[in-house]
C-alpha cells in the first residue's frame, strides 16, 4: 500500500509502474516527469543498472514519462478513470497491480 491509498486522502489521478528489469536507468523519465515523482534507485538491478522508481504518490497519469522512455515496456501509466465511490470492486485489481508493480 502506498501513501495515496490511505483512507481519507485524495486519490492520485495516475499511477506508475516501472519494470526494473527492462529499465536501463537513463533518467529521461525523471527529467520528463512534470510533477517530479520519479527518482533513481540506489540498488542496481541484475544487469547492473540503477533504475527509475516511482516515488509512490503524486502521479497525474499524464503519460509524458512513457513517451520519453526509450524502452518499449519499461513504464506503464495508469489513470483514474471513474469517479471514486462505494462498490468499485473491479478497481482493486488495477490498483493492486499498479501498487505491486510500483514497489518492485
Amino acid at each position: 500500500m502506498t501513501e495515496a491509498d490511505k483512507p481519507g486522502q485524495k486519490q492520485d489521478r495516475g499511477r506508475l509502474c516501472i519494470d526494473g528489469e527492462e529499465c536501463k536507468g537513463c533518467g529521461l523519465c525523471i527529467e520528463a516527469c512534470p510533477p517530479r515523482v520519479i527518482a533513481m534507485s540506489e540498488p542496481l538491478n541484475h544487469y547492473g543498472y540503477r533504475t527509475a522508481i516511482y516515488a509512490g504518490a503524486g502521479c497525474t497519469g499524464c503519460g509524458v514519462c512513457f513517451m520519453a522512455c526509450p524502452e518499449p515496456g519499461a513504464i506503464t501509466v495508469y489513470r483514474l478513470v471513474n469517479a471514486p465511490g462505494p462498490g468499485a470492486r473491479s478497481a482493486q485489481v488495477a490498483v493492486e497491480e499498479a501498487s505491486a508493480c510500483a514497489g518492485s
Binding site: 491509498d5 512513457f66 482493486q92 490498483v95 499498479a98
Partner: peptide, 16 residues
C-alpha cells in the same frame, strides 16, 4: 488495501 472509495485505474500508456 484500497478502500471502497477507491476509483478505478486503467492503463493509458503501456507497451504497444
Amino acid at each position: 488495501m484500497p478502500t471502497e472509495s477507491a476509483g478505478e485505474y486503467a492503463p493509458v500508456q503501456s507497451r504497444a
